[in-house]
Design a protein around this nucleic acid. Structure first.
Length: 426
RNA sequence: GGAGAGGUGGCUGAGUGGUUGAAAGCGGCGGUCUUGAAAACCGUUAUGGACCGUAAGGUUCAUCUAGAGUUCGAAUCUCUACCUCUCCGCCA
């Protein structure tokens, strides 16, 4: 959420940001008019309240002198009525202002290219595309022939775009997130968190998923709880309504969770296989940092995610997202796209964002500086990395002519020393 | 699910209708002392908004989980919601 005062003082900056994001359903002038109206009421209201407070002090004094304050009290009744009236008016305005304010996205950072997604900029590329002396299969063919993912039965027991991992598929998945968590905690300095997969409305609002994306979330019927679309939500909200200490920053968390997304409206695109599923595993990285450090921390965060792909030797490119492709709460975002030779596609495997104080303001996450002043922290997060699509990249990059899949050396200890997936192992 | 207790500042915790924005302690900051540190002592220390001022600062309003109500006046009384704790029940 942006600061209303900031919007008031920088309305042109906000207007440009909305245009850059190609958002046209925000009535900025309407908001400013409402704000103006509210401030006039507030001024009047505060004057009256001041009068009230003075009069109340006088009544107290009269009572102490054991006299009768009857006249004063009668006079105060009229003022109290006026105050009531104004309070009602302000209370009518507040939700109107709030409903616009909460839908205004974050301002893109100056380094973010302005424009539609075709303005996304590749900032670097790592690794060599693998060449095969046979026609590489896609992950669906591989998974089915090795019997490590059961697409059909997943549809039976739940519905379309769910998957069942089995045998070495399930084992590899488990190895992957264990390995990633170990790298991030032991080598990158993150603290491991295993949060709830259900969160309340305040948490979803705090990180910016609500109210805008409610139709993309799974919601419980009997409680006002949501299935998390990413560990970002519970982990960032860990410090909601808290005042952290500057000397404790940066705080770095990593968490493995399942992620649940309805993907409403995205049917027809990438619906086969593992690319777009309603439930997938992800290891997430979350940072709470001082404003001064946040852009350096973003670069480090991207580096931490890249490290995983480098270890797996998966070729990837780093994409700086243009303003039109930026998620609601983020100021700047890098996507990591890993190459999947079987599909001959670059797949988004990680997304690393700096939210500056946008989430912190919504979720009220602050820190006390060494000078004693309290201010909003900056929050960041990134996937480190998303498992389903990493699984695609691994299966397709590590496949052999014989139809087996080699297990990257670093993962072998996590799979009991096993070196390859042959399909014969139960 | 049943019964009871409770939600107060960065933290612990006092306060049950009238200078209480809120005692005390801890923590933080500044200082005295010290070669330095600790200890001790002294001082200081909520957050947000509006207005005035170049600024230092000043004036003022709000905020004791949230919302509604009673009252001239609410941290304090009433109602509702949410949350926490204790005991009982159920349960992996």
């Amino acid at each position: 959420m942006l600061d209303l005062k900031f919007i008031r003082d920088n309305s042109e900056v906000v207007r440009r940001a909305l245009i850059a994001r190609n958002i046209d359903n925000i009535d900025l002038d309407g908001l400013l008019a409402l704000d103006d109206k509210r401030r006039k009421f507030m001024h009047e209201l505060e004057t009256l309240r001041s009068k009230k407070n003075t009069a109340n002090d006088e009544i107290t004094k009269i009572l102490k002198e054991k006299k009768d304050p009857k006249e004063k009290i009668a006079a105060m009744k009229t003022i109290a009525a006026k105050i009531d009236d104004l309070e009602t008016k302000v209370k009518e305005l507040d939700p109107q202002i709030e409903s616009v304010l909460i839908r205004i996205p974050n301002i893109p950072h100056l380094s973010v290219p302005v424009g539609a997604p075709d303005k996304n900029k590749e900032v670097r590329r790592w690794g060599e595309l693998k060449t095969f002396d046979f026609k590489p299969k896609n992950h669906i063919e591989i998974a089915e022939s090795l019997d490590i993912i059961d697409f059909k039965r997943a549809t039976k027991i739940t519905g379309s775009n769910f998957i069942v991992y089995k045998k070495d598929g399930a084992r590899l998945e488990r190895a992957l997130y264990n390995f990633m968590l170990d790298i991030h905690t032991k080598e990158h300095g993150y603290t491991e968190i295993l949060p709830p997969y259900l969160v309340n409305r305040a948490s979803m609002t705090g990180t910016g998923q609500l109210p805008k994306m409610e139709e993309d979330m799974y919601k419980l019927k009997d409680e006002d709880y949501f299935l998390i679309p990413t560990a970002e939500v519970p982990v960032t909200n860990l410090h909601r309504d808290e005042v952290l200490k500057e000397e404790d920053l940066p705080i770095l968390y990593t968490a493995y969770t399942a992620c649940f997304r309805r993907e409403a409206g995205s049917y027809g695109k990438d619906t086969r296989g593992l690319v777009r599923v309603h439930q997938f595993d992800k290891v997430e990285l979350v940072k709470f940092v001082t404003p001064k450090a946040s852009y350096d921390e973003l670069e480090k965060l991207v580096g931490n995610a890249e490290r995983i792909l480098q270890i797996f030797n998966i070729p990837y490119r780093v994409i700086l997202l243009a303003s039109g492709d930026l998620s609601f709460a983020s100021s700047k975002c890098y996507d990591l796209e890993g190459y999947a030779p079987g599909m001959d596609k670059w797949l988004e495997i990680s997304s690393c964002s700096n939210f500056e104080d946008f989430q912190a303001r919504r979720a009220n996450i602050r820190y006390r500086g060494k000078d004693g002043k309290v201010n909003f922290v900056h929050t960041l997060n990134g996937s480190g990395v998303a498992l389903a699509r990493t699984m695609i990249a691994l299966l397709e990059n590590y496949q052999t002519k014989e139809g087996e899949v080699l297990i990257p050396e670093v993962l072998q200890p996590y799979m009991g020393g096993q070196k390859r997936i042959t399909g014969s192992i139960k």
